[in-house]
Write a protein that binds this DNA or RNA. Structure first.
Lengths: 104, 104
DNA sequence: TCAATAGGTAACCTATTAGTTACCTATGAA
DNA sequence: TTCATAGGTAACTAATAGGTTACCTATTGA
């Protein structure tokens, strides 16, 4: 979970996700065209995204094909809605407690 | 957005959110009881969470009262579902393209 | 009033992150 | 076959994150 949020906590990396999502099977070089930093820097971002399972890749000849993987996002999405519900449940409990005049 | 994801990319910080959500208006010291690290370390986590607007605080006497703020989470939630839809839309487009025999 | 309590600031240390350059490997096309 | 291309590895640097201790300020209650 840490790695997932960590991977998403970077605008360039979120941009890479958009790029790969919109060009499934694209190469590393393709992604590099969108950035001013070195290829190595981009590859490090790719590694972070792959560790978070947000990208998967397969080697085809001398090029590495990149694919976006929505699964961890689905996980976050589901976990998130649950957490979100719990948060509001917590707030409602607090509200109820206050309304009923309980002491803090 | 970076600060928000960054703030969430740490298990202790997510735990702090849970603690404050479940004890609205609690003190810094209260939060510290749940962790083995120094109070200063906890306060730094609190600062990160406040920068991400996930916590708000008010000073009352010599104690600082902490409150969970769901607003940024709602923002993520909404942005996220949108992004999520877009991702699936992207995948569907790709699928359609393949089915229709278009070239890569 | 004065000591205990709650919190804040400063200075420092270490590990991680994000970038760089230099160099290496493997594939594919002329 | 050989050279341009796509990618990978290593070693280094600068900035940031996350922790520490020491010390300071302000409130509150006995």
């Amino acid at each position: 979970m840490d790695k997932l949020f960590q991977a998403l906590a970077s605008a360039p990396r979120r941009e890479i996700l958009d790029i790969v999502r919109d060009a499934p099977g694209c190469s590393v070089t393709h992604v590099c065209r969108y950035f001013d930093v070195s290829r190595i820097a981009v590859m490090k971002h790719l590694a972070v995204l792959e560790e978070a399972r947000l990208l998967v890749s397969e080697k085809q000849g001398r090029t590495r094909r990149l694919y976006f993987n929505a699964t961890p996002i689905q996980m976050i999405y589901e976990r998130w809605t649950t957490e979100f519900s719990a948060m509001w449940a917590g707030r409602l409990t607090e509200f109820k407690r206050r309304v009923e005049g309980d002491k803090t």
